[in-house]
Write a protein that binds this DNA or RNA. Sequence first.
DNA 1: GTTAGGCATGGCATCGGTAACATACGCTCG
DNA 2: CGAGCGTATGTTACCGATGCCATGCCTAAC
Lengths: 339, 339
Amino acid sequence: MTEGAARLRQPSMADVARTAGVSAQTVSRALRGSPNVNPETKRRVLAAVEQVGYRFNSAARALSSGRSHTIGLVLLASGGYYSRSAVTAGVEAAAGEAGYAVNIATIAALDTGLMERALSKLADQGVDGFVIAVPLISVTRKMEEITHDIPTVTLDGSRTADARVLGIDQQEAGRVATQHLLDLGHRQVWHISGPDEWIEARQRRQGWQECLAAAGIEAPPVLEGDWSPDSGHRQGQIIAMIPEVTAVFVASDEMAFGVIRALRERGRSVPEDVSIVSVDDIALAAYCAPPLTTVRQDFYRYGAAAVELLLRGDDAEVDASVATASLSVRASTAAPRSL
Amino acid sequence: MTEGAARLRQPSMADVARTAGVSAQTVSRALRGSPNVNPETKRRVLAAVEQVGYRFNSAARALSSGRSHTIGLVLLASGGYYSRSAVTAGVEAAAGEAGYAVNIATIAALDTGLMERALSKLADQGVDGFVIAVPLISVTRKMEEITHDIPTVTLDGSRTADARVLGIDQQEAGRVATQHLLDLGHRQVWHISGPDEWIEARQRRQGWQECLAAAGIEAPPVLEGDWSPDSGHRQGQIIAMIPEVTAVFVASDEMAFGVIRALRERGRSVPEDVSIVSVDDIALAAYCAPPLTTVRQDFYRYGAAAVELLLRGDDAEVDASVATASLSVRASTAAPRSL
DNA sequence: GTTAGGCATGGCATCGGTAACATACGCTCG
DNA sequence: CGAGCGTATGTTACCGATGCCATGCCTAAC
């Protein structure tokens, strides 16, 4: 009577085993590609899997093996839309490649409490590793504990005692951008940086400073934005009031959009009066007016590299491949008028 | 001798129970906020949790309860960086609020095979529900099966037999944008749409058509882009060659950047010669040159609403709140010259 | 011809929670 | 004053895969 009753339960390994005429253990071995399985048996198992519509139960696997095959990704909700998307895609692709799933946690602001909560949440979920794409403004005991227990890679250069750092050379980006302006003949280069909490921002600033120092130029004061176009606009208004400025290195494309708008509103044209270089090379950079000269960042690759570093651990190789900084020269830079 | 040996195992509920002097079951109840627990007992349990450093094991919970408290989010790797980020943040926030984690799967292109694989992967991970932020170009048997077993909400209007649809009124967006141009005195409005696979794109196009029809205007041919600024630029070059065009409704801000660039390259100024309205209101829209008049989309809210619909299921209310379309009027639109 | 060792496979305990049922106690109500 | 019920807690089996050990078989070596 009840033989046609609804299937309430997903088929398990035991069902597959029964159908294939082997033990559950053998099914497990066959599916994981264990070496000591007869090819014929394996074929039968795979056929049975197909037949009963077996779907892997990752919770059971996680419980029994102690590893969840999941990595946790920590992001900041605001700022840098493009970079966030691209990093996420890169992480997910590389993780998927290695059979890992990706769990995300977004923090609304750079706040220690929120950060702790995000890490805790992911740790509770049982992630096998962390990719942290957000600066650790201050590392608490709790964060140390969590990142001590669970392998961690940070993307922006933040450190804990145990976290590994994916070495992206942001200083190089700052140097390349600044040098480009000097090469065009500018005698001074101003800088609108990202928020000081971000090591990325600090490194780009350092690259700029170093480059100026190497050229024997004393660096002007730094203006600080928050990555948003609005903040770029605000700082740009200040820049526009200083007649001697002919070149500005802006720490992100999004801010550069705001800076350029502010300059134009004050009657200073780009690049004729002021040259602008920024960093990121987002999809819209080529469609700014004028098109932005900017240092390309391959966020997708950074994300993927972070996962590789996390899972494989051969840092040296990854570091090298990620460190290159290349400039997309477009129309927001030119030689200064005086030349 | 070995009493100081390393703790290999994370403390479990049993450890908490022992410390608190109760049974494991009581610990479980206390932690989940079951009503029938003595407040004093609960206090003891919480103290014990703190003391032994207990961390919840979600794999065990998932295995035993059959629910993983995880939802799967499907995204497309290319196109619409802003919207992707914002939707993700919204989904994650609403999910976190409800005690759910978020697992992501990114598909590299709109391809049935990739889509199936993404759903399978998330299903294997044991997600309790799906939020699909990508159009289902064609729904296969396998997709039907998976979305039949696991509750699903689609964001762009795609349907399967069982998926629920978050009703975002994209037609309204198209109408509002088009009407704005007509109200300014334009006699004709052209349209650069998104890819035809996206229901979003089709709905915006329909809204545009309807609005024109209501005004007794015969719609001109549609030009189709792929959401990217590059595609906007290509279609914009075509538009620029047609002298009679005075107003264009572009289906996304990112494309609008490209369109405006193309028009200017051909000597047609915006908004004097051609008015442009688009959709999305991304952060950079206000920093386009000229600033974009655009229909705001609250992607964060869409993401959050999708999760609420998924978890709670009271669709009516959610639908209504999400349906509003508001126009951000900036400087890319003006009355036509002839007026 | 016996034994050692490799291979393919099966049996059983286990991971850490939760559902379902059982129990003990105190209180209300007829 | 005992039946009956609600509350707080304990007991037990179980979710589905995997680790470990045991088993049987076959080949190679002495």
